[in-house]
């Protein structure tokens, strides 16, 4: 009997030791980051740059794989189906963590099934008209939009630019014929080509279409760091009209499966610290907005803000999924 106890104790001790050793050694093999977009877009590009920087910190390769399709759900689920060991990390974004869970019956809950590490890539929306448009100010545009039903270009129905447009229409009592042109650049091209009268693009869209379009207002309440870099001198709705609401929530970052050991989370947080530095951000394409929030608590609060902002707007459109 004693012998059995001794063996068991020894075995347990060995197990504890090896477990400790395993944790101490993390990461000991390549880490995979799952991106739910196809290769080549902003989200993918920034993720690849981030993976490279984190790989230097962690000392193992950080590989990016793309799993597009299925309304971002297959990519999200593939991370939840993998063990919570920090070797499969999810690149979360507005569709996977916000719009799709709010509008569809999905088999996951972002804040319950994941532990977010940080938020980095961000964007804000702005209202644009053609450079030769008769509307030179937002006030002139308001008058025009009240006199006739203008055609509004957005990328996709239910996506942040559309939600910004809807919120603006609600706040200012306007009505539009809304055309979804699939991507933000296609929306801007549609505006330039005269397919639509006015369009909601991103603040950074200005870089590609400088002489062809005119920004009227930034569809946000508060001023954020990158506004002055992208659209100097353009007001936000919050600054120009007291009491009018304009919110936009476009964020993305990394998250691990809930239940990942705290030691691993700490290591990943330490390794991602570099992504918040000026040196790293200087490496990003200038069309990328960056809003750095580090640590699970801050990011969870940020995601909750988005849910509070978009739930009523989506509900108004009849798109909110009621559980």
């Amino acid at each position: 009997m004693k012998k059995i106890v001794r063996i068991t104790a020894a075995a347990l001790a060995a197990l504890a030791l090896s477990a400790g050793a395993a944790l101490a050694e993390y990461p000991e093999k390549p880490i995979t980051v799952v991106v739910s977009f196809a290769a080549g877009g902003n989200a993918d590009i920034v993720q690849r740059l981030q993976a490279e920087a984190m790989s230097e910190q962690l000392g193992v390769p950080v590989n990016v794989i793309n799993k597009p399709g299925g309304a971002h759900i297959p990519a999200t689920m593939s991370v939840l189906e993998a063990p919570a060991d920090g070797y499969t990390i999810f690149n979360w974004s507005p569709p996977s963590f916000m719009v799709v869970p709010l509008t569809r019956d999905v088999p996951y809950e972002p804040l319950k099934d994941f532990t977010p590490l940080f938020a980095s890539i961000s964007a804000s929306n702005a209202l644009y008209v053609r450079a030769d448009s008769p509307y030179t100010t937002f006030e002139e545009f308001l008058e025009g939009a009240k006199a006739e039903k203008l055609t509004m270009g957005v990328n996709n129905l239910g996506a942040p630019p559309n939600l910004s447009a809807v919120q603006m229409a609600n706040e200012f009592g306007l009505e539009f014929k809304t055309i979804a042109l699939k991507t933000v650049p296609a929306t801007m091209a549609g505006l330039i080509g005269g397919q639509v009268d006015v369009a909601v693009g991103q603040v950074a869209s200005i870089y590609a279409y400088k002489d062809e379009v005119r920004p009227l207002i930034i569809l946000d309440n508060n001023r954020r760091a990158f506004f002055e870099k992208d659209l100097p001198g353009v007001r936000t709705v919050g600054e120009a009209f007291e009491g009018k609401e304009a919110g936009v929530w476009v964020h993305g970052g990394l998250a691990v499966k809930a239940g990942t050991p705290q030691e691993i989370i700490d290591k990943l947080l330490a390794a991602s610290e570099v992504l918040g530095t000026e040196e790293f951000q200087a490496k990003l394409p200038k069309s990328v907005g960056y809003h750095w929030v580090h640590g699970p608590e801050g990011v969870t609060a940020l995601i909750q803000e988005g849910v509070d902002l978009y739930s009523p707007i989506l509900d108004g459109l009849g798109l909110l999924h009621k559980k």
């Binding site: 870089y207 590609a208 002489d211």
Partner: peptide, 8 residues
């Protein structure tokens, strides 16, 4: 590469 493909 830091370029902004578009009309510019």
């Amino acid at each position: 590469q830091g370029l902004s493909p578009g009309t510019q």
